[in-house]
Every structure is written in structure tokens, then in C-alpha cells.
Amino acid sequence: MKKIKDPSEKTCIPYTKSTLITQILMTIVAAVFILPIFVVFNYSFKTKKELYLTNALTLPSSIQFENYKKAFEKLNLATTFTNTFLYTAIAVLVLAILCSATAWAIARSKGKFFKFCYIYFIIGILIPFQALFLPIYIIGANLNLTNTRFGIIFMYIATAISFGVFLMTSFMSTVPIELEEAARIDGCSVIRTYFTVVLPLLKPAMATLIIMQAFQIWNDYMLASLYVIKKELKTLTVVIQSLFSAQASDYTTAMAAIVISVMPIAILFLSLQKYFIKGMTVGAVKG
């Protein structure tokens, strides 16, 4: 009589040579990515003396929180952190709303105008960002947008909207139109259909857009240094760079400032990680 296998019993996966090689390679790759992070954290707790007398992997003799205190005072992180947070949060929020609504209109409309709009946004992705610096500055200066909060936020939105529309439009093709048709039959208006039916289904794509653009804007240096000169409007990245100058280098304080600047983005990614992975892999498997 054939023995029935107990479902609760664990199935042992054979440990092959290829599995061992894969695990070794993944461990090496993980170590390569973790090592710079460890070095930054390690230096942020060292004294200046230990910085020059010990190597990067040597642990500090004692944890120095003085570096973090100096980072707050020397770089005025209370102001620069607030500026960076405001620029990032407002720009990302506006991008999520505009890109999702635009992508819905493009994906559901078959007219030539909407096809032209989609191609127009695609062309915007193909143009190198560095080639736009001079036109962006000229336009901003003529419109009195330089050295203003509104100006820097507006430019972040303008330079990122092409990629946002492309990403959201690609995801919209996976959203079944039958749900929208059923909502219209039930008497939902266009606006109500968008907010109650379409928008909840776009969570993975919106999370992907939010994370990617938040990374870009939070860590941006070129546009922030080009558009903002006033000290009270500068961002974290711009003020941290001042510690790496050839005349006066304060690496331990700079590393502490880098750790502080990384924490909000790390928390954002961990919070939206589930949706981010789904948004990046959508469309990879058809079925």
C-alpha cells in the first residue's frame, strides 16, 4: 500500500554545487554593498585622531556622538533638513497626483492627441538631464524662480514628470478596464471612478514612483546648487559637500551628517518596500 505523505513534513531541497556557488557569489555581492555603509557608520563615531591613525575597518575606541552634535551645529541641519524634506515631500506628492492622472488619461484614450502626449513625455526621458541645466536656469531666472522654494520645487517636478508618466502609463495597462466600466454602470462619475477604483489599484506604481523620485530629489546636488544660493534655502547635500573641500576637510562630521541624511530615505524605502517590489516586477509574468 502506497504511503501518503504528511503535508506537515518539510521537504529537503537537494544542496547542489550550483546552489553553493550561487550562495557564495551572493554573499560576496552583499559584502561589497554593505562595506561602504559600514565604513560611513564607523567613521561617524571616530575622532579625528582615529581617522588618520587607524584604517577604515577598525572600530572606534569609544562611540563619539560629538560628531553628530557638530554636524547639527556646523551645517545648521535643523534648517537644511527641513528644506530638503519640504522640497522632496511636496515635489513627490505633486508628481504622484499629476503622473497618475495623466497616465490614466493617456492609457484610456485612443485619440491622436494623447498618443502625441505620450511620445512627448518619452522624448523628455531621452534628453540628457545635464543638457537641460542652462535652459532651466535661464527660464528660472527670467521667471524670478531662482532662490525661491517654489522655484526649486517646480523644477524638480518639471524634470521628473516625464519618467513618472512613463512609469504610471506602463502600469495602467495591467489595470482591468472592466472595473471602471462597472463603476460607470453603477453611476460613478469620472472623478469618483478615478479616486475610488483606479487610484487604489495604482498603489504599487505610486510607491515605486515615490521611492525613486524621493531618492533622486533628496540626494540631488546639481539642481539644488544651481538654483539655490541663499544659505537659508540650501539642502542637505549641498551643505554636506562643503565639508569635503580641499581647504578644510572634516570627514568625521561629514560622515555623521551623511548618516543623518540617509535615515529618512531608508525609513521610506522600508515602509513602501512591499509595493515597490510589486511595482518593479509588474508585467514581468503574463498569465
Results as ranks from 00 to 15, higher is better:
residue 216 Q to E: 15
residue 191 I to P: 10
residue 80 T to F: 06
residue 56 A to P: 07
residue 87 Y to K: 02
residue 204 P to S: 07
residue 282 V to Q: 06
residue 182 A to N: 05
residue 136 I to M: 08
residue 153 I to W: 04
residue 16 T to A: 05
residue 82 T to C: 14
residue 12 C to H: 06
residue 197 V to C: 07
residue 245 S to E: 14
residue 262 V to G: 03
residue 71 A to P: 03
residue 15 Y to F: 08
residue 185 I to A: 06
residue 120 Y to C: 12
residue 264 P to R: 05
residue 58 T to Y: 04
residue 135 P to W: 05
residue 158 A to N: 07
residue 278 K to I: 14
residue 174 T to S: 12
residue 239 V to Q: 01
residue 31 A to Y: 10
residue 216 Q to V: 13
residue 224 A to C: 00
residue 90 I to A: 02
residue 10 K to M: 13
residue 220 D to A: 12
residue 102 T to Y: 03
residue 200 P to V: 06
residue 70 K to G: 02
residue 201 L to H: 15
residue 265 I to K: 02
residue 188 C to I: 12
residue 246 A to Y: 11
residue 45 F to T: 04
residue 102 T to Q: 01
residue 165 V to D: 00
residue 79 T to A: 06
residue 135 P to F: 11
residue 164 G to I: 09
residue 225 S to I: 00
residue 97 I to V: 12
residue 242 S to V: 05
residue 71 A to K: 04
residue 220 D to N: 08
residue 274 K to H: 09
residue 273 Q to D: 12
residue 101 A to K: 00
residue 114 F to P: 02
residue 257 A to L: 01
residue 264 P to G: 13
residue 282 V to H: 10
residue 84 T to L: 01
residue 221 Y to R: 05
residue 282 V to S: 08
residue 128 P to V: 13
residue 170 S to I: 07
residue 67 N to M: 05
residue 218 W to Q: 00
residue 74 K to N: 11
residue 148 T to D: 03
residue 264 P to V: 04
residue 127 I to K: 01
residue 252 T to P: 05
residue 2 K to E: 14
residue 270 L to H: 07
residue 139 I to N: 08
residue 167 L to Y: 00
